[in-house]
Design a protein around this nucleic acid. Structure first.
Length: 501
DNA sequence: ATGTTC
């Protein structure tokens, strides 16, 4: 069996695209990397593997710590990491969720074709840029008073329905129906709420964007039909998170963990893994606060989608309902969730990998997905009726020059990844390096002239940082997901208009 | 990712 070495870490190949760091020393489980040889070279290039091995030290980590094909190093726990910890005697880790709680992506379909849009690209990109708040700092679609922010945190997209920004159909096409019942706004600090108040409905900066795209390829006709996708169709992708509110919430709880659970931190190889013991008051409070920030992010994406419908109605002089602007799905890729999974256990009832298991039991776990997307196959009870028979849509954004993919949850995902797959292309170089290599305006000119992609951004520096060349090959990431059967290719899109911070 | 350096 083939092995690969990166520094002091040796990976053994289990089978194609599956690599394992064997359990040793203080590790509580082996680690696994799901990658082709080419992607593994990227993953071995930074601290991802060391961070993944560190993650296996988390109390109660079950089966494996897993790195998706687009993994790269993050704060403590790798981006592209999945870690399922026992919800009773394990831990809950803000570091394994990330700063941008419920960063995620949604796709809205339309009945427009690329032909309908051609000639209107500049008008559309200008109107979207005008209507959708973006960039660092404040300014949102709505400004919330103290009562509104509480309501948004508690009720997520249900608030948006009552306020006239969402329909029941939108709710039915969102992970968790756009609402986490476990949200506890009282555990979100006043400072975080104050930061969130004037950012309700705003894109933010960095890799966040809104993109109008056309469908170029269909890989599974029957699934695409269930998703309402066909070639040449115009769709809209919205990628953003919980802005300052989620960031502040993460910061608040990292600090409290350092103060209140120093003993646990001292036992971990990296303090940035920052976990609170399951069942502790702090774990319960963080879970309630994180769920509230999750609700905020869903409202954020909903308000941006609402504005997008208004802009399309203006530009094409038609009601958005006539253009059938429907939410296909909204997926979170920075979250933790209590989920029940079947795991193999040893004779003492301890979760072990399948090859060492004597029987299988259902366990309640905190599934941390940090830069990883839920990818549940048909049959999981969490799926909404629209996708119960076909599997959930998974949306994987590529760079602004490459386009994106729609997948559906694969039938191997529950066995391999606790029902997860990748979340994007993954960065190849740092933001600093990107700014040395690229100039924003040049990138925009080339995309427009060579690819008919219209990009408008608050900052030229952001365009340089997000240039297509700074990302890995999204096709390769998706190929691995499809071949492993964790997320199956359904359709591919290509950018038409892109706005960003 | 982020009122981009508590």
């Amino acid at each position: 069996m083939e092995t690969r070495e990166f520094g002091d870490i040796e990976l053994r190949q289990v089978r194609e695209h599956v690599w394992e760091i064997p359990r040793e020393g203080e590790m509580n489980a082996p680690a696994r990397v799901l990658a082709s040889e080419a992607l593994l070279d990227h993953i071995g290039d930074d601290k991802t593997l060391e961070q993944l091995r560190n993650a296996t030290h988390l109390p109660g980590i079950t089966k494996h710590a897993i790195c998706m094909p687009d993994g790269h190093q993050g704060y403590g726990f790798p981006v592209g990491g999945v870690g399922a910890t026992d919800a009773t005697d394990g831990c809950l880790s803000p570091g394994a969720v990330g700063y941008d709680i419920n960063c995620g992506v949604r796709m809205m379909t339309t009945n427009l074709t690329y032909e309908d849009l051609q000639g209107h690209e500049e008008e559309l990109v200008d109107a979207l840029f005008e209507a959708v708040p973006s960039g660092l700092g404040g300014g949102g679609v709505v400004t919330g008073d103290a009562e509104t922010i509480e309501d948004i945190l508690a009720r997520g997209m249900r608030w948006a329905v009552d306020a006239g920004y969402a329909t029941d159909d939108d709710l039915a096409h969102c992970e968790d129906e756009g609402f986490r019942d476990d949200a506890r706004p009282e555990f979100v600090s006043q400072k975080a709420k104050d930061r969130g108040r004037n950012q309700i409905g705003s894109l933010g900066s960095g890799n966040h964007f809104l993109e109008v795209q056309r469908v170029t390829d269909i890989y599974r006709e029957d699934v695409a039909e269930s998703f309402g996708l066909e070639a040449d169709q115009i769709v809209v992708l919205i990628h953003c998170g919980s802005r300052g509110l989620g960031h502040q919430t993460c910061t608040d709880y990292l600090r409290r963990i350092e103060k209140e659970h120093k003993d646990l931190l001292d036992d971990l190889p990296d303090k940035e893994l920052a976990a609170a013991p399951a069942g502790s008051a702090l774990a319960e409070e963080y879970y309630g606060a994180m769920c509230a920030a999750i609700n905020f992010a869903w409202v954020n994406r909903q308000l941006i989608m609402h504005r997008t419908r208004e802009v399309f109605a203006d530009v094409f002089d038609r009601d958005w309902r006539d253009m059938e602007m429907r939410l296909l799905y909204d997926v979170a890729h920075n979250i933790a969730k209590k989920e029940v999974h079947e795991v193999g256990v040893d004779p003492e009832g301890r979760p072990v990998r399948d090859s060492d298991a004597v029987e299988r039991e259902e366990r309640e776990l905190y599934v941390h997905r940090k830069g990883a997307t839920r990818a549940f196959p048909a049959g999981r009870p969490e799926l909404p009726p629209a996708y119960a028979e076909v599997g959930q849509p998974v949306i994987i954004p590529g760079s602004m020059g490459a386009g994106s993919y729609v997948l559906r949850g694969g039938d191997q995902s529950l066995d391999l990844t606790f029902g997860s797959t990748a979340h994007g292309a993954g960065r190849l170089m740092s933001r600093t390096k990107a700014k040395q290599e690229y100039w924003g305006e040049t990138v925009q000119d080339e995309l427009r002239e060579q690819e008919k992609i219209y990009v408008k951004a608050q900052s030229g520096a952001t365009v340089a940082e997000e240039a297509p060349g700074v990302y890995k090959d999204v096709d390769e990431v998706v190929r691995v997901s499809d071949e492993l059967g964790i997320g199956d290719k359904v359709a591919r899109t290509f950018p038409v208009c892109n706005i960003k911070g």
